Computed example of a mutant assay.
Amino acid sequence: MLVKRWRERRRRSQLDVSLAADLSTRHLSYIETGRSTPSPEMIERICDELDVPLRERNRFHLAAGFAPAHPERPFADLGAARQAVDAVLTGMEPNPAVAVNVCWDMLAANDAMLAFLDGLPDELGRAPVNILRATLHPDGLAPQVRNLGQWRSHVLRRVRRQLERTAADGLGELLAELEGYGDGEVPSEDADHDLVVPLQLATPYGDLSLLYAATVFGSPRDVTLDEIAIETFFPADAATGRLLRALADARG
């Protein structure tokens, strides 16, 4: 059933997947109905074609009676990968950057990002800080977001796409919570027709206009690493760039 569920999630036919994974349509049908048990190698071939996240792949292996194929280590124990995350975060200064897991819980952040999160109420600032909750909650940064309706709509669309792609545990509950904030979404036709949606944030030192980019690890083999993304906010205009540098100088 797991194979069928993910095949339908990816909107792929049995014929399409069987050809791509180099097996017969009958064999794939038997795997989907439980009449045939796939080998670990076959599981990986099918999962490759369906772009199944590593955490879900382990469930495929367990359902077939095998041990999980992909390890899951704590973030602190990722060795060189953890050092790479820290190097990226530090290298992004004075731009705010944060490493998050699949449910947007903060794993690490640079000084610029921590400065933005400083002052959150206890219920939002207690570890692990959820970046989306901290940004959109009425008691968080939401009152400072100049384009809150537009930004909230953009975030909700992004989380829905992420949930469709990953089916990650806890992400649906987070989405439902975020959808409960505010008074609805701004339709895309009412939003500014920029190339990307900026985060327009008011601060005591002046307004910031920020664009973001996401960085992920290529070809991860660990579940934790597979779910890590580094979100970096870059200045959308010269004034924001000057203000970020000035704030970094003040912290230094």
Rank of each mutant, 00 (worst) to 15 (best):
L199P: 09
I31M: 01
L54E: 07
D190R: 03
R45F: 04
D192F: 09
P74G: 06
A81T: 12
V129N: 03
S219R: 12
D207Y: 01
G172D: 14
P220T: 01
L163D: 11
Q162Y: 05
G79W: 00
L50C: 04
A229E: 15
D48F: 01
L54A: 13
E189N: 11
T166D: 15
L225E: 12
Q14K: 04
V145N: 08
P96Q: 06
V155F: 06
L141C: 09
L28M: 00
R157A: 10
L54G: 02
S29D: 00
P220V: 02
A214W: 10
R221N: 08
D183E: 15
L199A: 06
A127V: 11
D194I: 08
E231K: 06
L136S: 06
P74R: 07
I31F: 05
W104T: 12
D194G: 15
P94E: 07
E32K: 01
S188D: 15
R35L: 09
C103H: 04
V85R: 11
L2T: 01
G65M: 00
R73Q: 13
A246T: 15
W151S: 11
C103Q: 14
P94M: 09
E56A: 15
W6M: 04
E56H: 12
A81Q: 15
A99P: 02
W151L: 14
E56Q: 15
G180H: 13
V155Q: 05
M42R: 11
L156R: 02
E164Q: 15
L50G: 07
N147I: 03
A109K: 10
E56W: 11
P138I: 11
D122G: 05
R9L: 02
V3T: 07
E177P: 04
P143H: 12
D77L: 01
A239K: 10
G119H: 03
L117A: 07
D51K: 13
L114G: 09
A250W: 10
P40Y: 11
D194C: 14
D16P: 03
S29M: 00
V3L: 04
D51L: 08
E231Q: 10
D48P: 03
N110I: 02
R5L: 09
A112F: 01
D139T: 05
R158I: 05
I43Y: 09
S29A: 11
L114M: 14
F116N: 06
T90A: 10
Q200C: 12
L124A: 09
E41H: 06
A176V: 08
G65Q: 01
A115W: 03
R45Y: 00
F217Y: 10
L163Q: 14
T203W: 00
E179A: 06
I43V: 14
L156C: 01
A127I: 09
G182I: 11
D48G: 03
A84P: 00
L78G: 10
S36R: 12
R242A: 15
I131R: 12
E227H: 06
R82M: 04
R161V: 08
C103A: 15
H137Y: 05
L120C: 04
I31K: 00
A112G: 05
Q162F: 05
L174G: 09
